[in-house]
């Protein structure tokens, strides 16, 4: 589904990622581990197409299609989703209106207000989000935890093929991590895939991890299965070198 080959990329001419290779297949859950500043968020922003980041060499393909020249909204319409580490506040646009616009954009179909609202309320209830939040402005005045749950709400409403979660579990209390984790588990099935950045293995509890990658200073220095996640959560990154 996602195929990254020899990716060298960075920001303002400075290379941050030095030759990343990564393949994610349908039905898989991948975890990216690594200390702060190792390039994890940069990788996700590049896959989503943030204009600030530039590719120096290498390719990112999604379902066989080269992404390099596609705008972020075109990538979203192909089925790529990013749950942001710090979601933006959009004053004046309600959660419901933005999400309906997004669902219409992604599906290319006009969506009626009432059925949409019903579905939205049902998903909000599963995520234990106050139903009034639908009429609040996007992320404006939301607590850290509310913003993260709002990202998962968008994930479930947009139902993409590839869900990238950038520290969606950080800054959450135990109950909130559980809600987010259940939300991701609900989303995941054999036809889609997850790519997860986490410092906290809690979010992985409701999921089966297929592969873990350790990213250090812009390079993948170790790959493995669940055992790698356990290793890192117990001993940190000191044993990895590059």
């Amino acid at each position: 589904m996602l195929e990254i080959k020899s990716l060298h990329a960075g920001v303002d001419g400075k290379e941050i990622l030095h030759g990343i290779n990564l393949t994610v297949n349908r039905g898989e859950v991948h975890v990216i581990l690594g200390p702060n500043g190792s390039g994890k968020s940069t990788l996700m922003n590049l896959i989503m197409g943030h204009p600030k980041y530039e590719i120096q060499s290498g390719t990112i393909k999604f379902e066989g299609q080269e992404l390099n020249l596609l705008a972020p909204f075109e990538r979203a319409r192909l089925g790529i989703f990013l749950s942001f580490q710090s979601p933006e506040e959009i004053p004046g646009i309600t959660v419901e209106n933005m999400l309906r616009a997004a669902c219409q954009a992604v599906t290319g179909e006009k969506i009626k207000i009432l059925p949409f609202r019903k579905k939205l309320q049902a998903v909000m209830q599963e995520l234990k989000i106050n139903p009034d939040s639908a009429n609040r402005y996007m992320n404006v005045g939301f607590s850290g935890g509310e913003k993260k749950r709002n990202e998962i709400l968008q994930l479930l409403m947009l139902n993409p093929k590839l869900a990238m979660l950038d520290e969606t579990d950080s800054g959450l209390d135990v109950d909130a991590v559980q809600i987010v984790s259940n939300g991701v588990a609900k989303f995941h099935n054999k036809d889609n895939a997850c790519l997860i950045i986490t410092h906290n293995t809690q979010i992985l509890k409701s999921l089966t991890v297929d592969k873990a990658h350790v990213l250090l200073n812009g390079q993948i220095v170790a790959e493995g299965g669940t055992e790698l996640v356990d290793e890192v959560s117990q001993n940190g990154y000191s044993k990895f070198t590059y």
Binding site: F73, A76, I90, V106
Partner: peptide, 12 residues
């Protein structure tokens, strides 16, 4: 903010 909306499929 524009990138955020675009990442949800909304054109620029």
């Amino acid at each position: 903010a524009i990138f955020y909306l675009m990442s949800r499929g909304i054109d620029e």
